[in-house]
Design a protein around this nucleic acid. Structure first.
Lengths: 180, 180
DNA sequence: CTATGATTTCAGTGCTTCCTGAAAGGAATA
DNA sequence: TATTCCTTTCAGGAAGCACTGAAATCATAG
């Protein structure tokens, strides 16, 4: 053992902080707010069930902020509320399965972002339908058609991808349980 | 012909505006700024080569704004600078191939967002390596390992996807040319 | 080389989004 | 029912990001 206990703890903190910062940076990519990401980062990397006060202290953010973002995380399904016997507080813990987290985020984003786009494009097509003997309108229609074709294709591809993964994951789970 | 010329033009405008608004909404999803998206929206839906003044008028935004966002679009490869003989102005036109656009955006985002994440995670692993006889450190290492495994897997999956598409697209292009 | 037309840059400003902290709301104990 | 502990809500404020417009730069034509 080369390092003293205190030093090890500090090193660990460094890594955890770095990870939380990373999560913060990723937030834009995942389509969630920075703080929501940071909170999830702490919960994921520590793997522990933490209370609101733990999180407030760890990230130096206000109670209200933690409360609102935790409830969003619970809503998204990325974090679960748990209870510790003998304590009145709520504790929160993150999902640990990366695949599951990814799937949840992807589904949310599809529902909130892709679906409305498809609706709008279809509506545009309808509006253009009434002008179909206008050459310019037909050109616009073609471009929108290309997009629709592309998006629906991607969508079905993604659906198949997730279905496959679900199957795969179940199989892996079963094998793991059998080998115990 | 049910509608008069003027009415048709107005209807067309409506559709185009709706499309531009849609692009604006999508911007977050694509990881680009709203105005950048709107400008690209106009160029894509009209399919024409437009000047800066055309775009300023169409979207009611300032010259500086158009200039900066157009140069970003050119940098990304989504828009090309073209010239019209007899005019000193620059004109701009959008790519028309949806797949190509998607690929470009995906590549940019990977480079700007995914790669730095992989680097950070690997760096975290290294830092944890020095603490490998600490039980907590090993737990953290496992969680980061899961993420790395997931991300590299997704990355190679995406790469294969794009390679396949490139092949497919080339084939389609060849066939189209032969049948002329 | 100068004049004219076109584009880029950037400091100042406005807008949106996120965060704080205090007050209200709920739930468990006595 | 009152008390205590904990959580949620929300008005006001702070921070960050994008836009404007005018001045600087660049390019072409005369």
């Amino acid at each position: 053992m080369k390092l003293r206990k205190a030093d090890r703890t500090q090193r660990l903190q460094e890594v955890e902080d770095r990870f939380v910062d990373l999560w913060d940076t990723m937030s834009a990519l995942w389509g969630i707010s920075p703080t929501m990401a940071r909170i999830h980062g702490v919960l994921y990397i520590t793997g522990q069930a933490l209370s609101m006060d733990d999180i407030m202290a760890r990230l130096a953010i206000s109670r209200g902020n933690v409360s609102m973002n935790l409830s969003k995380l619970v809503e998204w399904g990325l974090v679960r509320r748990v209870h510790k016997r003998g304590s009145r507080r709520d504790y929160y813990e993150s999902l640990s399965d990366v695949w599951e987290m990814f799937t949840l985020v992807a589904q949310q984003r599809k529902r909130r972002e892709i679906d409305p786009i498809l609706n709008t494009l279809r509506h545009c097509q309808e509006m253009l339908g009434e002008l179909k003997d206008d050459a310019t309108a037909r050109e616009r229609g073609e471009r929108i058609g290309e997009l629709l074709k592309f998006l629906t294709m991607m969508e079905s591809l993604a659906r198949r991808f997730f279905e496959t993964h679900q199957g795969l994951k179940m199989a892996v789970g079963l094998l793991a349980r059998e080998s115990e």
